[in-house]
Computed example of a mutant assay.
Amino acid sequence: MDKVKILTGILLLVALIEVIAEYFRFLPVIYIFKPLISVVLMTLYWYSSPIKDILFFLTIVTSLITNVLFIPNDFKFIFIGLIVFVFHRLINIFYIIKVMKTKDFIPVILASVPFLFIFFYIFFDTDLLSNEVYYIMIIHNSLISLLGGIALSHYIMNDSSRSSWLLICVLSFVTLHFIIFIEKFYFQLQIFRPIAMSLNAFAYFAFYKFILIIEKSNSN
């Protein structure tokens, strides 16, 4: 069995342990396995990729930092995590635009509108946001809507395996964003955290597959 298959199996196992730990809120395991998902994914990409793009590693490292900062459920760490996540999302969007060679942004803007409507309707419907978080959440909602618009427009205009993996990845991100927002500002359920972690792990695996398909097609 080659290294890629072994690492894929390890990634699945690590993600499963992390999801279970999130359900029972077992912090010692979460502190180890949550960042370990990103480490294994970067290792998997290193052995799979013919290019080894630095932007992939920057995307995953900033995600890793954000995930660690969100663990303590302390406002100071969450606030810093939200700021880091803005940079993560900007890198993520730039990377996708770069590899997809996006030049016409009108379809992207049009496809972003439904996402903007949904997220800002929910956003303005709550009065639980503090002044510090208010403006950051506006940025986050705008960026996730733009990401949704990029994925949806490419899928509609060019239904290919890369577009499908990108759409799967982004829809997972969108659902994750929605669940986290509901949990933080409306009501909390024990099942939310494992669902969010499952979506997070699956989204980044889909992102890895999306990037790998592009790199291999370009190298051929």
Results as ranks from 00 to 15, higher is better:
V29A: 07
L212P: 00
I17V: 14
Y95W: 12
V113F: 13
H154G: 09
F70H: 10
V170A: 01
I118T: 04
M157V: 09
P50W: 10
V39T: 03
S164G: 05
I10E: 03
I71P: 10
V14K: 03
K216S: 08
S164A: 14
I96P: 00
F56A: 00
I65C: 06
I144S: 15
G148T: 03
V86G: 08
I97W: 13
P50D: 11
I65M: 04
S198Y: 09
Y186M: 09
K103F: 07
D104I: 13
S38K: 00
L152S: 05
R89E: 13
F85Q: 03
P114W: 04
T175G: 12
I91A: 08
A111I: 06
S145P: 02
T43M: 14
M137Y: 14
V113P: 08
I54E: 11
T43Y: 11
F205R: 09
N218V: 01
L13T: 13
G81V: 05
V86F: 05
Y204H: 11
L41M: 11
F173D: 13
F205M: 05
V113G: 13
Y135S: 08
L176T: 09
F185E: 04
S145R: 01
G81L: 11
H154C: 01
S217I: 06
A201Y: 04
Y31S: 12
M137N: 10
D125F: 14
V113I: 15
F26S: 02
L189A: 10
D53E: 13
I6A: 14
S163F: 01
I65V: 14
E18Q: 11
I139C: 05
L16C: 11
L12E: 08
I214G: 02
N220H: 11
V133S: 10
S198W: 08
F79S: 15
F26R: 05
I136L: 15
K101S: 13
I168T: 05
I51V: 11
I32W: 08
L58P: 00
A151C: 04
P35D: 09
S161W: 09
M42E: 05
M197V: 00
K209T: 06
M100K: 13
P194M: 12
F202N: 01
L55H: 04
L199N: 02
S63W: 03
D2T: 15
V84D: 12
L189R: 09
L90I: 15
I136W: 04
V108P: 02
I211A: 02
P194Q: 07
L147V: 02
F70S: 10
D53F: 07
T59A: 09
K101Y: 10
L143C: 10
M100P: 01
L27V: 14
L16G: 08
F77P: 03
L212T: 00
L199Y: 09
Y45K: 02
V99D: 06
F120M: 06
S153D: 12
L58N: 02
Q190G: 08
S198H: 04
G148D: 06
I118S: 07
Y155V: 02
S130P: 00
R25P: 02
L171D: 07
